[in-house]
Computed example of a mutant assay.
Amino acid sequence: MPGRIHRVRASRLVSLLLLLQTRGRMTAAELADELEVSVRTVYRDVESLHAAGVPLYGDAGPAGGYQLLEGYRTRLTGLTRPEAEALFLAGLPGPAAELGLGSVVAAAQLKLAAALPPELRDHAERVAGRFHLDTSGWYREPDDTTHLAAVADAVWRQHRVEVGYHRWTEPREVTRTLSPYGLVVKSGTWYLIAHNGRGLSTYRVSAIRSVHALAEPFDRPADFDLAGHWRSTVDEFERRQQYQGKAVVLLSAAGRARVPGNLPAVMARAVADTATPADRPQWIRAVIPIESIPHAATELLRLGAEIEVLEPPELRQHLTDTIAELARMYRPR
């Protein structure tokens, strides 16, 4: 146990040193938050680093904090085995290539591999050879990323852009002047987070029809948290898209077997949780969540005659009308 404690503290001292090296001046409270320790522990660690000869000093007052002597750079380059493996596993070759960085990522990994001790290099390369991350979805063409490089350049340089954008609602084709804050890739789809003069909005990069870079810089808020903003955006989207209604359905044995691959996960879970025997042999009755009537009809038609909607009446009527129209369409001529 004492040996493990020493290793944990040594790792924390290295982390503290690298934080100051990469971020500059930081207060004891900021360091404590980053390292997930108490401020008192930070004080002790700083004293240990100073005693070890690290040129580290602190300033008192509201604008104070700890920092390294200007020009000092640590030569600490050691990686633990899990860290080396994680670096090789974290590569995103698809998105990197779309950003024009595929060769850069490959070169960086080569340099990293060359710098690692043989044992770590073997483990890291084994991970890269046995695990592959594919961010694209099934049964769909990849998004058009024609304008991704231009958008990414504007994000990096903090310059405004004028974009032609295709919307889902009227007017479909619009022009927007944007201050691009950041890019997010989710399931193989790129999204631009940008300020449009009224507030932050999310734009699908594949819906951008043109990009004109403006010679006008903008100030990106220093406290803007791209990952945090994206999480709140996703949460808000999911709240708006929540299944507000319910439907009572009958499912055959074959239909129930097809549910996981054909219906959304929330519907599949509801079938499993609410299934009770129906009057028909080998059929079950279940209550499932639904969005709008048209959306629910589209989802449930995937199961064909293996499902019957009992309630609500509006959904049952919508399905009846749709099936009747299909019957007329495919009537022998």
Rank of each mutant, 00 (worst) to 15 (best):
P171S: 06
T169L: 13
A106S: 12
P117H: 15
S179K: 15
A84S: 07
A86R: 11
D122T: 11
G91Y: 02
T74C: 05
R126Y: 08
A124V: 03
G91F: 03
K111S: 12
L87C: 04
R140W: 08
T145G: 09
P82N: 01
T177E: 13
E98V: 06
R130W: 07
H132W: 08
A149S: 03
V127S: 13
Y139L: 15
R157N: 07
V163N: 01
V127P: 02
T74V: 05
R176Q: 07
R126Q: 14
T146S: 11
G100M: 09
D134F: 09
A86F: 08
L76P: 00
L76E: 12
D134R: 12
E83D: 06
T175I: 11
Q109Y: 14
R167H: 05
E83L: 06
E98W: 04
H159Q: 10
E83F: 05
T177D: 06
R130V: 00
P171E: 08
D144W: 03
V127C: 07
G102D: 03
R126D: 11
Y165G: 01
A114R: 12
P82G: 04
G100A: 08
R167I: 04
G94Q: 15
K111W: 01
T135A: 11
F88S: 12
L89E: 04
H132G: 14
E85F: 00
Q158G: 02
E83Q: 15
T135Q: 13
D134L: 11
L101P: 04
K111T: 12
Q158R: 12
A150K: 02
A108V: 07
L148T: 09
W138P: 14
E119S: 15
F131P: 06
H147G: 07
L99N: 00
V163G: 00
S179A: 10
R75E: 15
L116P: 00
L133K: 10
W168M: 12
R140S: 11
G164I: 07
P93E: 10
Y181S: 00
A149Q: 14
T74W: 09
A152S: 06
L101R: 11
L110T: 15
R176P: 01
G100F: 08
W156P: 01
E162G: 04
P93G: 11
A124Y: 02
R176W: 03
A97H: 09
E170T: 09
T77P: 00
D153Q: 10
P142H: 09
A113C: 00
L120S: 09
G164Y: 07
A97I: 14
E170W: 12
W168D: 13
G129L: 06
R160H: 06
D134V: 04
E173T: 11
R121G: 05
A115T: 05
A84H: 06
L112M: 09
T80A: 14
H159C: 12
P171C: 05
R172C: 02
L99I: 00
P118T: 04
G182N: 00
T177G: 03
R160I: 10
R121F: 01
F88W: 08
P117W: 01
G137C: 12
L178V: 02
P180M: 01
G129Q: 10
V155L: 03
R167Q: 04
A97V: 08
A84W: 03
D143P: 06
V174K: 01
Q109L: 10
Q158L: 14
A114E: 14
E162C: 14
D144F: 05
T175F: 11
V161I: 15
L148C: 04
P117R: 15
R167A: 10
